[in-house]
């Protein structure tokens, strides 16, 4: 993308503390949207669900299915809020960039926050850190450490490498998919903006690509949560 970013550098005089204000804004927007959806959907809860409660319970059951396909439900139920929040947050964050992008003074303000590797890697690191935390919490320090030496101790270096690899791939997969989608969207937009004929020619591809990106967004949110739960199950389950 040939846009700049609204940077706010060296906050508090700390040389490494830079903010991309666009990311801050979009993170906040995505969180707000997810929160509003969740709260609106869980008002007037009834034993016999109606309307939007059905929808949110469908999501619950969906995520429940994802978790129980990775680990048994008794262990997995405590990750349900995390998994649902992750799924909805990433999905919303992904589709925020589909609808439109806003550029002010050459700075890109409105985009998908997940089109930034820092954001996605933060999520990935958080998830992997949580898997380690729950690994220690649910299996004890001994069981957690033993996990690195099973099935055979010689795999220990590989296991260490694996921890970094899964973190990196988890974050980069999401980032790559969303960023690539946004790059192509930006290209299409600049192409359409260059003239009437181009606008007409680019209309159908634009539409198709937006639809495809919607698909990618949901798939990537699903994959991210699915893998998070699989990594979690590797740490918290006894035999794998």
């Amino acid at each position: 993308m040939d846009h700049g970013s609204p940077m706010y550098e060296d906050v508090f005089g700390i040389s490494w503390l830079d903010f991309n204000l666009s990311n801050v804004l979009m993170t906040f927007v995505a969180s707000l949207v997810v929160f509003l959806i969740a709260v609106l959907a869980s008002r007037n809860l009834q034993r016999k669900p109606t309307g939007v409660q059905n929808f949110i319970e469908w999501i619950f059951d969906f995520v429940k299915g994802m978790i129980s396909s990775a680990m048994d439900w008794k262990t997995g139920r405590q990750f349900l809020p995390l998994a649902i929040t992750l799924l909805m947050y990433i999905f919303i964050a992904n589709i925020l960039g589909i609808m439109f992008m806003v550029t002010i003074n050459g700075d890109l303000w409105w985009k998908s926050p997940t089109a930034d590797p820092g954001i996605t890697l933060t999520l990935a690191v958080m998830v992997v850190a949580l898997t380690h935390y729950y690994g220690v919490k649910l299996r004890g320090t001994k069981g957690y450490l033993k996990n690195f030496f099973s099935p055979i101790p010689i795999l220990f270096p590989l296991k260490i490498v694996e921890e970094f690899a899964i973190t990196l791939t988890l974050g980069m997969r999401l980032y790559g998919n969303i960023f690539a989608g946004e790059v192509l969207l930006a290209l299409l937009v600049s192409f359409m903006a260059s003239g009437m004929l181009e606008a007409a020619a680019g209309f159908i591809p634009m539409l198709l690509w937006q639809g495809f990106k919607l698909f990618i967004s949901s798939i990537q949110a699903f994959i991210f949560v699915m893998l998070a739960m699989v990594y979690m199950s590797h740490k918290v389950m006894e035999d794998h």
Binding site: F19, N20, V24, T27, G118, I119, L123
Partner: peptide, 9 residues
């Protein structure tokens, strides 16, 4: 990677 973004996120 902007450390600030990560922290905010």
């Amino acid at each position: 990677f902007n450390a600030g973004d990560m922290i905010v996120q």
